[in-house]
Simulated assay, not measured.
Amino acid sequence: MNTVLDSIRSEALFASTLQRSQSPTPELIREAVTATVDRLGEARCAEVVAQEFGEHPDCALGRMRWALRAVRSAFA
């Protein structure tokens, strides 16, 4: 896997409205990543992640772990 691409996708999923509790399919994850990058752009996705880690580090860590696993699975 491409580490940079995984990072961008994970940040986009993190910044999306998709929730782990929705048990999203790989297709929904890929759609959410694409839509979020299209809507926000790569830089803004990274900004959202940084903001959440600054304001809510306890919640952000779990969401990023989920995003990383979900992206690796959906884009495998």
Rank of each mutant, 00 (worst) to 15 (best):
R20I: 04
L61R: 14
R30M: 03
S21N: 11
A46H: 09
T17K: 14
I8V: 11
A43H: 09
A76K: 06
S21D: 13
V37C: 04
S21M: 09
Q22W: 10
A15W: 02
R9T: 08
A74W: 05
E47G: 11
F75I: 09
S10E: 04
F75Y: 15
Q51C: 11
Q22K: 10
Q19R: 08
P57L: 05
V33M: 06
Q19Y: 00
P57R: 00
A76S: 14
S21V: 12
S73N: 12
N2T: 09
N2Y: 01
A12H: 06
L18F: 08
A74H: 06
R65M: 14
R65D: 09
T36E: 02
A67E: 03
L28C: 13
P26K: 07
S7G: 15
L68V: 11
C45E: 06
G41W: 01
M64C: 06
G41H: 05
S21H: 02
S10A: 15
E42A: 13
H56C: 02
V48Q: 05
A15G: 04
T17L: 12
V48A: 00
G54V: 10
R63L: 00
E47F: 03
R63H: 02
A46I: 06
C45M: 04
L28V: 11
S73E: 14
R44N: 05
S21P: 04
V33D: 00
L28M: 14
P24N: 10
A76V: 11
I29L: 07
H56L: 10
M64T: 02
G54R: 13
A76Q: 09
T34A: 15
S10L: 06
L18S: 00
F14T: 01
C59E: 15
T17I: 12
S23Y: 14
A35H: 12
S10R: 12
A67P: 03
R30G: 13
L5E: 02
D58M: 10
D6A: 13
E55I: 07
R69T: 15
A35K: 11
V4H: 05
A60L: 01
R9A: 08
A67S: 07
S7V: 12
G54H: 11
V48P: 01
